[in-house]
């Protein structure tokens, strides 16, 4: 066990865990930030996507010991009240079915739009095809990314 200081959503957290513990489980079990979801544990589904220094990152394969002073943002920290343009677009388009994959989808889309604020359809498809939605909400995910790209950036 070792003590890790983490910068998450603009706050400092501490967790006393084994060095190989994936960030995902530190968030969920130790810090009570359960918005980041477990889907596969092997970087195949994207449910666990968070931002590390602005990069969409799969937290299920990211050992806590590798994070250091990097800034982590989870779905809980994307905006205080769910007002990030991507969250708003997701609401307007009514994307969620069961909703389980959507935190990962939103975090992927938010990081993507930050880099590419006015993407074309092919770019959206390429960016969003690493995240699985078992409910098949893909049409609306695509549409919501487009809607978000028309909103003023946050």
């Amino acid at each position: 066990m070792a003590l890790y200081k983490l910068q998450i959503n603009g706050r400092s957290y501490q967790a006393d865990v084994e060095p190989d513990t994936p960030l995902l489980w530190v968030l969920r079990d130790n810090l009570g930030l359960v918005g980041t979801k477990y889907g596969c544990g092997i970087a195949q589904c994207g449910a666990c996507t968070v931002h590390i220094n602005g990069e969409a990152t799969r937290s299920c394969v990211m050992p806590v010991s590798a994070i250091g002073t990097s800034k982590v943002v989870t779905i809980e920290g994307l905006s205080a009240e769910g007002t990030h343009p991507v969250q708003q677009a997701w609401d307007e388009v009514d994307v969620a079915q069961c909703g389980y994959c959507q935190a990962g989808q939103i975090m992927t889309a938010a990081a993507f739009l930050k880099k590419n604020p006015k993407p074309n359809n092919d770019e959206i498809d390429a960016a969003m095809s690493g995240n699985i939605c078992r409910c098949g909400t893909y049409h609306r995910i695509r549409e919501a990314v487009k809607v978000a790209s028309t909103k003023p950036a946050k």
């Binding site: 779905i75 905006s79 969250q87 009514d94 969620a96 079915q97």
Partner: peptide
């Protein structure tokens, strides 16, 4: 969806 807000902000729900 009546649960949009908690889903989209990552509240404990599942």
């Amino acid at each position: 969806n009546v649960d949009n807000k908690p889903i989209l902000t990552g509240q404990p729900l599942f």
